[in-house]
Design a protein around this nucleic acid. Structure first.
Lengths: 164, 164
DNA sequence: TAAGATTGAACTCTCAATCTTA
DNA sequence: TAAGATTGAGAGTTCAATCTTA
């Protein structure tokens, strides 16, 4: 990526604008209106995790989604209000909520999963095998590099030492 | 990516959660506190575009950033208030604002550019050559596939005819 | 009418403070 | 004290409606 001819002052057009646009467009997760019901991106992610992983606490869901516990608190309340998620205090430790898909919630989650899978199939079908392979390899590496560098990993994030 | 053994009901864990986490972590664009001044991600992008592309209208900036014109209106007002961007109505057509970095704005933008480049250098330095190559190839393909599928490209995403 | 820019309402999210249970 | 969950304030964004200029 770097090393090629650089015409712009800002770094790395491909990564920078590319990633931003990709996610802004929501192309990877949209559409999130499924079968007449509307869900936010985070709600789609949430029911997906509950479908795949089963019952869990709000704290655990927040970790999986990369959201604040306060956000998940409101998110879970919304899903409960719509009848897709049941929230029950854990008997042995009443600090915990146990989140679980209702029957209706499971139905919705499975519809979304099918929609999303079809969407991704179409999307990835437009890539060449080399591009699909490259994406898998490159994202894995990037994810690892970001994780090593993450704030919560204890790395100094604002070290200006290597500027230039 | 697809084609491998699928254990989860929701599609494509790698893409789905990976991308979401990547951007949540902000690892690609952070840090965006530079030399004592704070900028939002969108402000960083904005001064970057103005540095690279020169003067432009708010509409144009909104396109480049993938933001609504209303968002850019407030964003530009903020940058103007802080003395980094000059907004002048175009003489020949007073509907347009011409956005342009001030001298101070250019100084800030160049600092950010250096910070960001160093950050990306460190990040990409943690990837193997194969991963860097894969990322470039894969992202280019994904970007193309998303663009073909994008709403503004005229593809049937939500059938504008009856969506009211 | 059309196009660029602005405003107001609503939504998602974070952060800090607080409540509740252990 | 500690940990899970909730609440309130504030930021950034979108959408729809409006203002301004052509």
């Amino acid at each position: 990526l770097y090393g090629a001819t650089v015409t712009n002052t800002f770094p790395d057009d491909e990564l920078r604008r590319g990633f931003r646009q990709l996610v802004r467009m929501g192309g990877l997760l949209e559409p999130h209106d499924h079968a007449g019901v509307h869900l936010t991106l985070s709600e789609v992610m949430a029911v997906g995790e509950l479908l795949d992983q089963g019952a869990m606490s709000q704290q655990r869901l927040a970790e999986l989604l990369g959201l604040e516990k306060s956000t998940v608190s409101r998110l879970a309340a919304g899903l409960e209000r719509r009848g897709w998620v049941a929230r029950e205090r854990v008997a042995t430790n009443r600090r915990f909520y146990e989140l679980q898909l209702t029957e209706e919630g499971r139905r919705v989650a499975e519809l979304i999963a099918a929609d999303l899978r079809a969407h991704h199939d179409r999307l990835l079908g437009r890539l060449t095998p080399a591009e699909r392979h490259g994406l898998a390899v490159g994202l894995a590496g990037l994810s690892r590099a970001l994780h090593d560098h993450a704030p919560h990993a204890g790395v100094d994030r604002s070290d200006p030492g290597g500027a230039g």
